[in-house]
Simulated scan of single mutants.
Amino acid sequence: MRAVVVRTFGGPEVVEVVDAELPEPGARQVRIRVAAASLNPVDAGVRSGVFGGAGKTIGLGWDVAGTVDAVGVASAWSVGDEVVALDYGMAKPLGTHAEYVVVDTDAVALAPASVDAVHAATLPLNALTAVGALDLLALSPGQSLLVTGGAGAVGGFAVELAARRGLKVAALVREEDEEFVRSLGGTRFAGGAETFDGVLDAAVLGPRALALVRDGGVYTGVIPQAWPGSERGVRTDAVEVGADGARLAELVRAVDAGELTLRVADTFSLADASTAHARLAEGGLRGRLVLVP
């Protein structure tokens, strides 16, 4: 099968499409025939060596939508099931940017019935990150939340999920994105000296975002071990996403209920993975790039 890997670190030019052995599922695992797999900033980080793994062949891709193709012993899934999953891992030999991927059975959820596989592939990593960050913030209905990067992939999900929790959601976005974020449930936009009960720093602004938290409030970032230190009694931490099929199933139900908006910026063939990485590096995307085998 074809798979996207890096064997040395660098820019988009180091991304390769290689022939790899078809992986076989073990106990409590499934093999998914990939229909679509989104490209995330973490893939660029892996590609450039941020997470280590020098000297190894590293497979790229965390998100997947596709069809169960084979099952191991004690799997809860059946061949033919249409699913989505998160394949967590920084330096794994194969990722979801491939024709087939093997994942643990408890990382899998039935795919949304209301969208195609390309859109479904944008859900797992970003939505699980958003809901995990909101859980860490632990704000109560009626409290105020600022989401930096509220028009981005994680930020957009966070705005929608926070509004459903009864929070007063503000966003830090470009002026041209205000109408879109308002459609997600954002009620106002940050400016001036206003502070908030909590800040979800999806744009990774660090100290700048921390300054927007009221004394005694809470800050949550999206990069593990990379959040600013506490000050003014503000609790600071960051979400570390993990594969969670049960939680993913809840998010799928929200998609089918029209409560979460999935956005695709563009699609690329697997053979054009390097070009997709170059487009990601250009920035300015609203929605995810998706690879289609």
Rank of each mutant, 00 (worst) to 15 (best):
P112H: 02
A113I: 09
D116A: 10
D116Q: 06
D116G: 15
V118S: 00
H119W: 06
A120P: 06
L123T: 03
L123M: 00
P124S: 06
P124H: 11
L125E: 08
N126F: 14
N126V: 15
A127G: 01
L128Q: 01
T129W: 11
A130F: 11
A130N: 06
G132I: 02
G132N: 01
A133H: 02
D135H: 14
L137W: 03
A138Q: 08
A138N: 10
A138W: 07
L139W: 13
L139V: 15
S140C: 11
P141G: 09
G142K: 11
Q143C: 13
S144D: 00
V147T: 00
T148D: 03
G149H: 03
G149T: 02
G149C: 05
G150I: 00
G152W: 04
A153V: 07
A153F: 07
A153M: 11
G155N: 09
G155Y: 07
F157R: 03
A158Y: 09
L161A: 15
A162I: 06
A162K: 02
A162G: 02
R164Q: 13
R164K: 08
G166E: 12
G166M: 04
L167W: 01
L167K: 01
K168F: 14
A170D: 08
A171K: 09
A171C: 12
L172Y: 10
L172H: 04
V173F: 08
R174D: 12
E175P: 10
E176S: 12
E176I: 06
D177A: 15
D177P: 11
E178W: 11
F180A: 13
F180S: 14
F180N: 13
V181T: 13
V181Y: 13
R182T: 01
S183K: 13
L184E: 01
L184N: 01
G185A: 06
G185D: 04
G185N: 03
G186Y: 11
T187M: 14
F189K: 06
F189H: 06
F189I: 07
A190M: 10
A190I: 03
E194V: 13
T195K: 15
T195I: 12
T195G: 13
F196K: 05
D197K: 09
G198I: 03
G198C: 01
G198T: 00
G198P: 07
V199I: 07
L200F: 04
L200W: 05
D201R: 02
A202S: 11
A203H: 14
A203E: 02
L205Y: 11
L205P: 15
R208I: 05
A209C: 06
L210R: 00
A211I: 02
A211D: 01
V213P: 00
R214C: 05
R214L: 04
G216L: 05
G216A: 00
G217D: 15
V218R: 08
V218E: 09
V218Q: 04
V218C: 09
Y219L: 02
Y219H: 08
